[in-house]
Amino acid sequence: MSIHLNRDLENLQRRILALASAVEQTVERAINALFEGDSRTARTIMESDTPIDLEENKIEEECLKILALHAPVAVDLRRVTAVLKINTDLERMADLAVNIAERVVSLTDLPPIPVPMAFRQMTDLTNMMVRDSLDAFVKLDVALAKRVCRLDDEVDRYNRDIIDEISRYMKQSPDHVDPGLHLFSAARQLERIADHATNIAEDVVYLVDGKIIRHHPEAFS
């Protein structure tokens, strides 16, 4: 393998892992802030998005440079394209975490609303999917990646349960309508974060096996 390509791929891997770690923390902090009603943390999350956006651009430039200069093939090509896509997913996850943080800030000025039971389970599951998808990427673990893909349906189920429950609260009292809408939105952002974790897991399977399993749920097992 060319020493130049090797050097550039190693550098790319370091950068994407650093970004992944930053995004994972952002998502986790946003979820905790939501449960604890911690608007101060929420505000810091809202301010921490710019470095992530900038790093996304740099990683994309790095990928394009490798494609142009080295014309990689086979596993090297799959790695660069996987990083290119994972990079976008990570940036979107961070944006969604910021959206959750904005809901937290909005909720603090509103009358309290009971948080549906399924919310905790959904956040735990989403957190786990984010962590496992990134672990699968680091360890090139196809079995773990496929497990993440399978969990997405469960997150969707929790999301539906949460929406049903919040709808009931909103029907019970007009005071629940405004905070209920913010909770709706937070649940929706969480569901989207889980979708991006699934995308990352699918990219890991492509990276290792060369198979595109997106839109093929039968390939998740």
């Binding site: 393998m1 390509l5 990689p72 093939v73 086979a74 596993v75 090297d76 090509l77 799959r78 060369g210």
Partner: peptide
């Protein structure tokens, strides 16, 4: 063959390993 070769020898050769 250039995106997902089946044999390891092919992969090693085309990626310059």
């Amino acid at each position: 063959l250039f995106t997902r070769p089946e044999k390891k020898e092919t992969e090693d050769y085309i990626t310059g390993r």
